[in-house]
Amino acid sequence: MDINVTLIGQMVAFALFVWFTMKFVWPPITSAMAERQQKIADGLAAADKGARDLQEAAAKAEDALKQAREEAREILAGANRQAMQILEEARTAAQSESDRIKGQAQAEIDQSIASAREALRKEVATLAISGAEKILGREIDAAAHSDIVDRLAAQI
């Protein structure tokens, strides 16, 4: 193990190699690595943001859907209410119409009954008078006794 000029040669070679590495090898490699690191970080951030946006959009869509459903329900309820109202109105109208018709018919019936009763009463009065004439054997002055006859007829 003799020390000789090889030592100097190795020192110079080593210094040159280190200089070369420092100048031409290390910076490009590390800068490429740093750049890639940045790119990956950016990509991850973008992915995160995308996921967040997606979530937001989904929530928004969900909201819109809910609102639409609400509206539909409201519209449906309104329509139902309106239908019920129309139905109610129709029923009321029909009821009143039927009442009216019924009332009219009743009135007619009442009138018919009254007139029939009147006619009957008149008939009975006539019959009573004719019966009384036969019984009395003479004619009763219809005009003079009409009040009695009428009272009689009213009692029947």
């Binding site: 190795q10 070679a13 190699f17 070369f20 590495t21 031409f24 090898v25 290390w26 910076p27 490009p28 490699i29 800068s31 490429a32 690595m33 750049e35 890639r36 940045q38 790119k39």
Partner: peptide, 21 residues
């Protein structure tokens, strides 16, 4: 020593030149 050092520098320089992100 020089051949091996040269091998090291050549290889790493080659990569450094074409290093991409």
């Amino acid at each position: 020593a020089l051949v091996l050092g040269g091998l090291f520098l050549w290889l790493f320089r080659k990569v450094a030149k074409s290093a991409t992100a």
